[in-house]
Each structure stands twice: as C-alpha cells, then as structure tokens.
Design a protein around this nucleic acid. Structure first.
Lengths: 228, 228
DNA sequence: GCGTAAAACGAACGTTCGTGCTATAAAGCC
DNA sequence: GGCTTTATAGCACGAACGTTCGTTTTACGC
C-alpha cells in the first residue's frame, strides 16, 4: 500500500504551460459536449481534434468524470460571462428581469455553444443517471432559476410586478419558454422560435406589471432577428 | 456474387413466435431508451435484460439503427394510445385542447416511460446528429405540434378562443410549458412542476377564451396531484 | 410426426472506449 | 547549466460496442 509516485500534472502543482493546455482542451470540450453530449465527449476524439495524444490529454484530468466536471465548470464560466454579467448591467427590477430573458435567448441564437444551451443538453442527458455530474448540473440550473426568482422578487419589491404571482411559478414559466425556444431551434433550426419565446414572455410580463413598471420592448437584437 | 442463403428472421417472413419476441424486446427497449437514451440502448444490455443472446436479439432488427427506429415506432404507438386517443374523447374545441395538455402532463407523471417523455429525451439526444433517427423524431414531434395547432384552430373556429393569437404561437407556448414540466420532473423529481404547468396553461387559455367558451378546470387528476 | 424454415445461440471479429504503465521531452528553479 | 519537476507521448490492457458466422434448437404447416 505504498503511495504511488507523483507523476501526472493532475496530482501535482500546475505550470503555466500545463494550465494553457488545459484551457485549450476545455475550450474545445465545451463545444463538443454541448453538441455530442457529455458522454459523447470522448477522450480519443477530443485528443484527435487537438492534435495531441489520448494519454497526454488524459493526464490533465485523471478520469473521464473529472474531465466532464471541468467541462461543466468551463461552460458555467462562459455562461456567466455571456449572460449573467451583461444582464446585471440593466437596472434592478423588471428591466433586468426582461434583459435576463432577452440575453438568454440571444445566447442560444448566437450559438455561444455549438449545440445550443449547454446545460439544457446536459440536463436532458443526465437526468436519469444519478451521480456527481447530474448533481452538478442540477445545482447550476438551480442557480439560474434562483437568479430568475430573485429578479422577480426584486421587481415585486420595487412595485413593478404584481404580487399575485408566485416567483417560483413565473420563473418556471420563463425557463420553460426559453428552453422551448432552444429545443425548437436545435431540432428544427427554426429561428422563429426565439421571436415566439420573446412574444410569450413579454406578453406574460406585461400582463403582470403594474402602472409604475418600465416599458418593456424588443431590443435591437430581438427586432432585427424577428424581421429576418 | 451469389445470393446469400436466407437465414435471419429479418430477411424472411415472420412467425407468430418471432413477432412475439420482437414485441417483448421493444417493450423493454422503449423504457430503456427513454431513460438511457437511444444510444445508451445497447444491444448487449438489452439482451441481458431479456435473458437472451446478443445475436438472437440482433437478428430481429439487422442493425442498431433499425432497432432504434423500431423502438421509436413502438414509443409512438404507446404515446398515441396513452395520450392522443384519450384526448379525442373530449369534444372538439377548447375542451379537447385542454384535455390534450392535461393528459400529456399526466402521461409524464404516471411514468408511462421510465425516463419521462420519450420524444423529449430523444429529441434532445439527436438534435445535433443528422440522420434518419433525427428526422423521424422531428417528424413525430411535428405531428404532435400539428395536432395542438389543429385543436387550437378548431377552438377558434368554434368561437371559443380569440382569433388574435396565432395557432403556431400558442402551440409553441403550450409545448414549451409541457416540456418544461417534464424537464423539471426528470431533473429534480419535483412533482409541483405539473401543477405549475397546468396553472400556466390554464391561465393562458382562460385569458384567450371567449364568453362562449366552456369552463376549464383542473380535473380530478390535476387536483389530486396538486394537493399532494 | 416429419421436414423445413425460423429463431436463438455461442464464439469471434475489428473498433473504440477509459485507463494504466513507462519513457522521453520540455519547463522552471537555483 | 545542471537538476528536478512537469508535460506529453507511446504502448498495452480489459471491457464493451455493433456485427458476422456457423451451428443448434425450436416452432409450425402438411
């Protein structure tokens, strides 16, 4: 039962070079996984796509599961950078809530990930497979739903949104419409899906807003794309 | 280039016994596929679960793709039996439209398929993989969306639903909310998801119905489950 | 109940999967 | 510049995949 000799990058400190390679791997992994799934993300194919050896790539993670977890973490960072942070620039309340929805749809349409929403794909893939991966995905999706809920509560606290709607209920509806657009776009390549989701969400938000609510409207983004 | 001797069930006529086995295989396949995915549906595991040999099972289909297509066809039959036919018992118009939604949610909640809606799972799995499988899934989903649309148009023609809403738009919204409930139930096991979807759909339908529309309400089904 | 055709089997094929070893090349510190 | 640590490669493994083959068992029409 002797300790094994420390040999891989994984078990030791990291070097600038090692970290660079790792990032390069994850950048590709994230796109492959969003399209082919976290299971379809095979080490061999990933290595080939990066022109490196299986074992060399493997050493950075130590196991497939660790690679998957690292890929999920990388995808989460991208999501935060591309969706969450931009939306936080809108002022708290209904404006921000709408911006969260609007930018999310744009994030799918812009194909930030090749296979649409990374987490929608991963959730569908792992929802029947208990384990660390599934738990992590569920956690991240809860973060997102929680963020929506908070923004809804803030809108209510600001007197811009009626109190009769339960935040969890509205968050569910918004999320469902967003995922519906993602689903429709992935399966049919139908870009109208985004306009439909925007229309549905806008209609719902307007029907629930108060007289002191800001005016919600399609952004340049939404309109330009709807016109196409 | 002589013709091979005819040897497999696939290439020859079928016997009662062969057909029975085939059905038994598909009955299991449909559940495995809904949970593990159409790719996770491996011939070896399926054979083990049925206590038969890989080759014996394989001979019924001739290829994995054929097995997948047969599984999809079997799932479609079950869906029609469990959702479409029951809903057609309601009278045409808004009642039927609501019943379509209600029964669909029930079909997921009753776990007609182990992994939730078979087609939602299959669509997510194959949406980035062009081929026969993907095409067939897309076709079947179009059937369903088309059915919703038709029911919406019938409701409008009967003067029960306002004309200002485009049928495709409402069908999109309903489908999204349903899939959202399925998604939430699969990932979190949260049974409240169904109540939320019912509430959202009911709210939407009521907001769009005319004075001559029938009263829509939660059925025994919906209420009992919401109370739990 | 016999003869034939269908159904099921067991073993093996070539791949690809994830994962170990061991050796070499590169990087980073003193 | 030499030494240690890290990064990558090469090779092999056992398992599982879909598929094929030849054989054996079972079902069914006459």
């Amino acid at each position: 039962m002797r300790k094994k000799k420390v040999q891989t990058a994984l078990l030791t400190g990291r070097t600038a070079q090692g970290e660079r390679t790792r990032q390069a791997i994850l950048e590709v992994a994230v796109h492959v996984a969003s399209a082919a799934g976290l299971e379809g993300l095979t080490i061999g194919r990933l290595a080939a796509k990066l022109a490196m050896s299986k074992s060399g790539l493997f050493a950075h993670f130590g196991s497939k599961e660790e690679l998957q977890l690292a890929t999920i973490a990388a995808a989460r960072s991208i999501f935060i950078r591309e969706v969450v942070h931009p939306a936080l620039k809108a002022e708290q309340g209904l404006s921000r809530l709408w911006k969260l929805c609007d930018i999310w749809l744009d994030y799918v349409q812009r194909e930030v990930f090749e296979g649409g929403c990374f987490f929608a794909a991963a959730a569908a893939e792992f929802d029947s497979r208990p384990g660390v991966i599934r738990d992590r995905i569920a956690e991240i999706m809860k973060e997102w739903l929680g963020g929506l809920e908070r923004s809804i509560r803030e809108s209510q606290a600001a007197g811009q949104l009626q109190n009769k709607i339960a935040p969890a209920q509205l968050a569910f509806e918004i999320n469902a419409l967003e995922m519906g657009a993602n689903w429709s776009f992935q399966l049919y390549g139908d870009p109208d899906a985004f306009a439909r989701a925007r229309e549905a969400i806008l209609q719902r938000l307007r029907s629930l807003s108060t007289k002191s609510a800001p005016t919600l409207a399609l952004t340049r983004r939404g309109k330009r794309r709807a016109a196409a």
